[in-house]
């Protein structure tokens, strides 16, 4: 394989795999948006909260799975509290009010997470080594991180699980009904509050997985809450209410970002990763405001 092509493929694959990590965060947004129409700015803080709690439990010497279970339980309790204290009084408010409320929630959770635990950087070891995949390396001379591959596998499993959860059974049907039309769902007797609590808990689970994976990569600290900001362009690209959109959008953004950083970056000064994703999203927004897989918004401005 020629050197140039191998390099291109390496960047592309690294981009796609890091895109999976973005998808994981975007997934949390989509779940909540689908069910309640709330754009949850606090998803990043939830990721931080989950990761920090998990990391600290592990540091206390608690068994890996037991720590994960306790953290998940805490996230579920958190979801119930959020629903009870914040969402219920704000029901039927304009979406923009709810959006601002989640910005407040974001600050609150950040403060809470770092207040209860601390602001140090914590190492988080999931038992997956961040090493190149040797057999691929030998065969094609392309460097692929094994950790990224594992992250992709975990993310895939999570998506299959969520899709199954959303399609099957009473809860799944209720979730889809609520996603379709809040009021109609309520009028046929679906307990809206319960569904919201379930959805926020599911978003908490996604936050935990995302937080654990990002945490191993970057170390568990405040900056992983900023990962959520990377997920916003993914959402715009994929559409706010499509799980598939979050995945595909993440892949596109991840790949485009890495390629741009490598090929365009040096020309205009580097560090363009911070905003390039937004640029793609903005351009896309002009052409197709509902995103790749989003439901078409009929309302015209």
């Amino acid at each position: 394989m020629p050197e140039e092509l191998a390099w291109f493929l390496e960047v592309l694959i690294a981009g796609l795999l890091s895109g999976v990590m973005y998808s994981l965060v975007a997934l949390g947004f989509v779940l909540i948006f689908k069910a309640s129409g709330v754009f949850n700015f606090a998803q990043g803080a939830m990721v931080l909260f989950a990761a920090l709690t998990f990391a600290r439990f592990l540091e206390m010497g608690i068994n890996f799975w037991f720590a994960a279970a306790i953290t998940l339980f805490i996230m579920v309790v958190l979801a119930v509290i959020i629903e009870r204290v914040m969402l219920r009084p704000l029901v039927a408010q304009p979406v923009i009010i709810l959006f601002m409320a989640t910005i407040g929630l974001n600050y609150f959770l950040e403060g809470l997470a770092q207040g209860v635990w601390d602001t140090q950087v914590h190492a988080l070891d999931l038992g997956i080594e961040d090493v190149p995949w040797q057999s691929v390396m030998d065969a094609t001379n392309i460097l692929i991180s094994l950790f990224d591959v594992w992250a992709a596998v975990i993310c895939g499993a999570l998506v299959v699980m969520l899709a199954y959860f959303f399609q099957k059974g009473r809860i799944g049907r209720a979730l889809r009904a609520v996603a379709d039309d809040n009021q109609a769902a309520m009028s046929v007797g679906i307990p809206l509050q319960l569904i919201w609590a379930i959805v926020w808990a599911a978003a908490g689970l996604v936050a935990l997985v995302a937080g654990a994976l990002w945490g191993q990569r970057l170390g568990v600290q405040f900056s992983i809450s900023l990962v959520a900001l990377k997920a916003l362009p993914v959402l715009i690209l994929g559409g706010f209410n499509s799980i598939a959109g979050a995945i595909i959008g993440g892949l596109i953004i991840g790949a485009a970002e890495k390629l741009a950083e490598v090929y365009i970056g040096p020309i205009i000064g580097g560090g363009i990763e911070a905003w390039f994703a937004y640029l793609i999203a903005m351009l896309f927004l002009m052409v197709r405001p509902q995103g790749l897989f989003g439901e078409k918004i009929i309302e015209r401005v």
Binding site: M100, A101, G104, E110, G111, L112
Partner: peptide, 19 residues
Amino acid sequence: LITNIEHMTFGGLIVYFLI
């Protein structure tokens, strides 16, 4: 800790005022 309490207070107040 004060910074964190400050964040929590701001966040809590935002939600409180919006409600």
